[in-house]
Simulated assay, not measured.
Amino acid sequence: MQPFQDQELGSAITAASSPSWDARAAAGRRLAAEPQIEGVADVLHRLLLDAYDTAVTSDTAIALLARGDLPGLRAVLAARAQAADGGTADQLSAELDGDPRWMTGEGVDQLIQQLQTLTSDADPQVRDEARRRLSLLR
Rank of each mutant, 00 (worst) to 15 (best):
R74N: 06
G107C: 10
L47K: 05
I62K: 04
G98I: 14
A33P: 03
G39K: 14
D99V: 06
L49M: 10
D85Y: 13
R80T: 00
Q110K: 14
D121Q: 04
A32Q: 01
D99Q: 07
V76N: 02
R101Q: 14
L44G: 03
A94D: 14
V76T: 01
H45I: 00
S93H: 06
R131Q: 09
Q113S: 15
L48N: 13
D121K: 09
R80M: 03
D85H: 15
D128I: 00
V43I: 08
L31N: 04
G98L: 13
S93E: 02
G86M: 11
G86S: 11
E38C: 14
A79M: 07
A61P: 03
Q82T: 11
R132E: 10
A89Y: 10
D50A: 07
D123K: 14
D50E: 09
T88H: 11
D50T: 03
E129L: 09
L115H: 05
D59T: 03
T117Y: 10
D42W: 01
P71G: 02
P124C: 13
A81I: 07
Q116E: 15
A33L: 05
A51N: 11
L65T: 07
A94P: 10
S93Y: 08
D97V: 12
L48K: 15
V43S: 00
T117P: 12
E38S: 15
A83K: 09
D123L: 14
L118Q: 08
D97G: 13
R46W: 00
D123E: 08
S58E: 00
D121H: 08
Y52S: 13
T104H: 08
Q114R: 13
T57R: 06
I112R: 01
R131W: 06
D90V: 13
L73C: 01
L64R: 02
H45K: 04
D85Q: 15
E38P: 08
P35W: 11
D121T: 05
I112Q: 05
S120W: 11
V108E: 13
A33N: 10
L96V: 07
V76G: 01
L111Q: 13
D53E: 11
L77D: 02
